[in-house]
């Protein structure tokens, strides 16, 4: 049943697979990001109470959700790396951590910018804000530990253990608005209940959510490809890959999109 998965324990197979998917994911991410943000920021209706300043929700909520989603993904990869000793999973810890940290920072930053007009303050020590800040520290710890060791494999495993221990923070963040009486409002979108926002506002938000998911995936894939190249530089396939312009076209595309 899992046979199709086995080749991707090897760096080369994963590299090729990511190379094939990356242009599509990037294109879809750019498209949905444009649609979601333009719709939400320019054409969606203004809030009756918060006016136009609520529009930051189209960046804040997706960034916050996927800062946790990226952490969950990193923890799953850490688990795979520790249990089955798969090297691509180890590298993907290093690929995911900075992306997740940036998403966490975006969530905190946009939250502060939103809090200033709404709550009258940039920052309050409320449960959700504090636990999201802890998430940022956890990402920092994982990255620091990953690169602290002479031996890269030891570093990856140590970072993986830390990532798994830090998973306890995810439910704390998620339920912080329910467990404590906080300034931060409760969840707007839940799976089981009717969302507490107008449909014209909901659609752009859902599209931005999709966009942030795709964007996160694209950045992680790009970083993982680089990570694989960095670790397998001594292998012959890397030399072939880098010297052969035919299969390197995907690389050029992605670099153009970056710049």
């Amino acid at each position: 049943m899992w046979r199709w998965l086995h080749p991707y324990a090897k760096g080369e197979a994963t590299y090729q697979l990511l190379g094939r998917w990356l242009p599509w994911v990037t294109a879809l991410a750019l498209l949905s990001l444009t649609v979601g943000l333009v719709w939400g920021l320019a054409f969606g209706p203004a809030d009756y109470q918060q006016g136009d300043s609520y529009r930051i929700i189209y960046i804040h909520v997706p960034a916050a959700i996927f800062s946790m989603g990226a952490y969950a993904g990193m923890a799953i990869m850490a688990f795979i790396a520790l249990v089955w000793q798969i090297r691509t999973a180890e590298w993907s810890i290093a690929a995911i951590a900075p992306v997740g940290a940036v998403l966490t920072f975006i969530a905190l930053f946009t939250g502060a910018a939103w809090g200033k007009p709404m709550w009258g303050t940039w920052w309050v020590w409320d449960a959700r804000l504090t636990s999201e800040l802890i998430l940022l520290f956890l990402y920092a710890g994982v990255m620091a530990l990953y690169y602290a060791f002479e031996d890269a494999r030891t570093g990856a495993k140590a970072a993986g253990i830390l990532a798994l221990v830090g998973v306890v923070n995810l439910p704390i963040i998620h339920f912080s608005v329910e467990w404590w009486n906080t300034l931060h409002q409760g969840a707007t979108i839940t799976k089981f209940a009717k969302p507490s926002m107008a449909t014209e506002m909901l659609w752009p938000l859902l599209i931005s959510l999709l966009a942030f998911a795709l964007m996160t995936a694209a950045f992680v894939m790009l970083r993982l490809r680089h990570e694989i190249l960095r670790h397998e530089l001594h292998r012959p396939w890397v030399r072939e890959e880098l010297l052969n312009p035919k299969s390197a076209s995907a690389d050029i595309n992605s670099q153009q999109e970056q710049s």
């Binding site: 504090t130 520290f137 956890l138 710890g141 620091a144 923070n169």
Partner: peptide
Amino acid sequence: VLSLLVLPLFIP
């Protein structure tokens, strides 16, 4: 590194 790792986990 140790204090960087451990302090966030102490916060809860």
